[in-house]
């Protein structure tokens, strides 16, 4: 594969042709703030916080780094005065939209807050409509949630705001949400998400509740519908078990 050399903030980075600028930067320890990008779910390009300045042939332009494929050698800057000013505007608008979000508040703090008093919004919702949750759910093949309505009433929800038959209660949507605004409630072995209640299964090893019946069934189907007795082991115990196995095999040598 052709290697390309990209100079980001003065640091020389090697990259594969077509790699996204944000990925190259991250791999080289250069932090570009971003909200709607997740390494498993690409291409939302909704928040624009990840903007960077690209310099080529003596010309410069602003690009969205999470979807900007680097095709030839170039130079990029991720933290110029101009970019910081743009991020400040973006974050000011976002914080006007979701005044209660901690994530946005602390980012806005970092970039300095602009005056957005002329915009106001209802409290009680920290969603920035980035679409990551919808993408995560669709990636699973569940497609339980989507954007509903449009304009100022646009939101993410299940059809008719009702418990969705398609939802398996896995919580992936909540896991990827950058503002942490999807509520998961867990008590007495019941998980509630998107207005739907799920019964939880205990781990066969440690006895902790860790997965919904529906997600367990989903995983079972995906693994080719394993028949017979199925062990339910939570991630922690599984890791511990693998570690133990590795220890044992290495001790044999």
């Amino acid at each position: 594969m052709d290697k390309i050399s990209v100079i980001i903030n003065g640091k020389k980075c090697l990259a594969d042709k077509g790699e996204f600028l944000l990925d190259i930067a991250e791999r080289n320890g250069i932090v570009i703030p971003h909200l709607c990008h997740h390494e498993a779910l690409r291409g939302q390009a909704a928040c624009r916080l990840c903007i960077a300045e690209v310099r080529e042939n003596g010309r410069k332009r602003i690009v969205t780094s999470c979807i900007f494929p680097v095709m030839r050698d170039l130079e990029a800057e991720t933290d110029t005065e101009e970019i910081r000013e743009m991020r400040k505007t973006l974050l000011s608008l976002l914080s006007a939209e979701v005044p209660e979000s901690q994530t946005i508040a602390s980012l806005a703090e970092e970039y300095g807050k602009g005056d957005v008093s002329r915009f106001s919004k209802d409290f009680g919702n920290e969603c920035i409509l980035c679409g990551l949750c919808v993408e995560a759910c669709s990636e699973l093949g569940c497609n339980a949630i989507a954007t509903v309505n449009r304009g100022i009433t646009k939101k993410i929800s299940t059809p008719y705001d009702e418990p969705s038959a398609a939802c398996i209660g896995c919580g992936s949507c909540a896991y990827v949400c950058p503002t942490g605004c999807i509520r998961i409630d867990e008590r007495n072995g019941i998980r509630t998400i998107w207005n739907k209640e799920f019964e939880l299964i205990r781990c066969d090893r440690c006895g902790r509740y860790y997965i919904t019946k529906e997600e367990n069934e989903y995983l079972r189907q995906r693994n080719g519908g394993v028949q017979g007795e199925l062990q339910c082991i939570c991630k922690n115990c599984r890791q511990a078990e693998t570690a133990k196995k590795i220890m044992e095999t290495s001790l044999e040598f």
Partner: peptide, 10 residues
């Protein structure tokens, strides 16, 4: 998917 159809309808 029902969710996508509903999204469109709204």
């Amino acid at each position: 998917p029902f969710s996508q159809l509903y999204s469109m309808a709204t």
